[in-house]
Computed example of a mutant assay.
Amino acid sequence: MTLNKSTSLAFIALAVSFCIGCSSKEDRDKYDHYYGSGSKVREETALVKLQNDRKTPPPPPVEPAATAPAPAAVDSGKAGDSAAVAAAPEAAAAPVVPKRKPVPADVSALLNKHACFACHQAYDKVIGPAYSEVAKKKYTPDQIVELVHSPKPEHWPGYPPMAPLAHVPKADIVVIANWINSL
């Protein structure tokens, strides 16, 4: 009698696992792309690109500005005017480099504790958006808490969906959120 019951339950369990395991190839591919081996390739590609971007320094902005005023100086024929013309474009052409604030020690400890740095950096895109990009969205700390606990991928098209981090305490997220909004 017990054998018949356990056999029936085994068949039911097998049928349920078969039904659950049979999803479409498209669904399996999508899952694999975001969470399986596809995510590993995407992560490695993003890290290699980030490392290459850091290795190649941006071209110095002074060279294009220095060559541009030369024709104007020749055309004017006045030595005093050419010095003023040459100085003005260089000052105007100087690129505005965004000020990068260092990550405070308490925030850095929280970001490391909850593994946030695995996907996000303060100013650079890794897998997820940079915190400076998140700051541009002007989320309130409560909105950031909600988005960490239950992410909305539609807010960040082009990025892989973030896993829900319901285990992260609200107080920790509020500290991080206040720092993000200060960027």
Rank of each mutant, 00 (worst) to 15 (best):
V16M: 15
G80S: 13
S150C: 01
M1N: 06
A15I: 15
A94N: 12
E44Q: 13
P129Q: 09
P64M: 12
S23L: 12
A177D: 08
A135P: 05
D53P: 03
L147V: 07
D142H: 06
P60K: 14
L3R: 12
L111S: 04
A91N: 04
N181C: 10
D172S: 13
A79T: 06
T67N: 04
K136G: 14
A46N: 09
P89C: 02
V62W: 14
P157S: 12
S39I: 00
D53Y: 04
K152M: 12
L147Q: 10
T2C: 05
R100T: 11
T7K: 04
A86H: 11
K25T: 14
V48W: 00
A72T: 07
C116E: 06
S108V: 01
A177W: 02
A92E: 07
A171E: 13
H167L: 02
A171V: 08
L14Y: 03
S6I: 06
S82G: 07
D75F: 11
H155W: 07
V96D: 09
P59G: 11
D75W: 00
E154T: 15
Q143G: 03
W156Q: 06
F18A: 15
P104M: 05
V62G: 07
G128Q: 03
P71A: 10
K55Q: 09
K137S: 10
D27L: 14
K30C: 09
D142L: 10
P161V: 00
Y35T: 07
F18S: 15
S6K: 14
A94L: 11
Y131P: 05
Y123F: 04
P61D: 13
Y31H: 04
D27K: 13
S82R: 01
P64K: 14
S132T: 15
P164N: 09
T56A: 03
M162D: 02
P169K: 11
E26H: 04
A118T: 04
L50G: 00
